[in-house]
């Protein structure tokens, strides 16, 4: 019985999207930042949001884990469902949601604490570790997933802020995956990094796809093409086109998408 339902569950997982957004509108005070956006984020895929600056892709990303709640004037309408549950329901605690939907930011922002404490913080506050050795195991696993373990295993108690930019960003990714989220949101994670660090992070994103759904906002179309399976193109607060990355880049349906990826607008 138990096994049956689990099987049924995983079968549905493949079919139905992880996050389903319908008619999403976002307002900052009187400004209408996002208009009627519909997006499906599939399981175990990388979805890239591209578009010119100020098109609302970061805003939309931050709606997916309710980071916009910290902005008083921000208002969100429409329906956004994670595994079928409305994340903007009154009963939802954003803190619980963010444990499921982790986030990595544009600028690497490690806490001014040790590398170990940076990664251990999430598991600690969510009570994921029962003992000290448990915690050490979680931290090691997270750092390995963040492709940082080999570089920092000898100096786990050195400050996280002392790492290089690329290492800091991988530390932030490790910190985000340490809480075992189901979805990982990345807001231009490579924009502050040099090409070598960018390549490392991109490789890492592809690895992460095995365990998480990844949503990435990026300004680099090459990056979107390299790492994502699905791409959404935003323009002036609207979702212009959403589909398979290959199709968007080779055979876009909308003329605006074509102009953007060929470099004529944006």
């Amino acid at each position: 019985m138990n096994d049956m339902s689990r099987l049924a569950g995983s079968a549905i997982d493949v079919e139905t999207p992880k996050i389903l957004a319908r008619n999403v509108n976002v307002f900052y005070g009187d400004t209408h930042a996002i208009r009627d956006v519909n997006v499906d984020i599939a399981n175990n895929t990388v979805t890239a949001f591209i578009g010119p600056s100020g098109c609302g892709k970061s805003t939309f990303l931050r709606c997916l884990n309710r980071m916009n709640d910290t902005i008083d004037s921000c208002r969100v309408t429409g329906s956004m469902r994670l595994d079928g549950e409305d994340i903007y329901d009154k009963r939802v605690d954003p803190v619980q949601l963010r444990a499921k939907v982790g986030m990595v930011f544009q600028k690497p922002n490690p806490f001014p604490k040790s590398i170990f404490d940076n990664v251990a913080y999430g598991p600690k506050i969510h009570g994921l570790a029962r003992s000290k050795s448990d915690l050490e195991e979680i931290v090691e696993r997270a750092l390995r997933r963040g492709a940082l373990w080999d570089e920092v295993k000898d100096r786990l108690h050195a400050p996280g802020t002392g790492l290089s930019g690329g290492q800091q960003q991988r530390l932030c990714i490790a910190r985000a995956v340490a809480t075992e989220p189901e979805v990982l949101l990345m807001d231009e994670p490579c924009s502050a990094l040099d090409p070598i660090a960018t390549a490392q992070v991109e490789e890492l994103i592809d690895e992460l796809r095995r365990n998480f759904s990844v949503v990435i906002v990026t300004h680099s179309m090459q990056q979107a093409a390299r790492v994502s399976q699905n791409t959404a193109f935003f323009h002036l607060g609207q979702l212009v086109e959403f589909g398979e990355t290959g199709q968007i880049f080779t055979n876009p349906e909308d003329p605006r998408t074509e102009s953007y990826i060929t470099g004529r607008i944006g």
Binding site: N65, M67, T70, V95, Q96, L97, R98, A99, G102, M103, V104, F105, K107, N109, P110, F111, P112, Y121, G122, I125, H126, C172, R175, A176, A178, T179
Partner: peptide, 14 residues
Amino acid sequence: PPSIRDAALGIGAS
């Protein structure tokens, strides 16, 4: 810096 608050909120701190 606000990035510290974002970092904490982003991994599910209250």
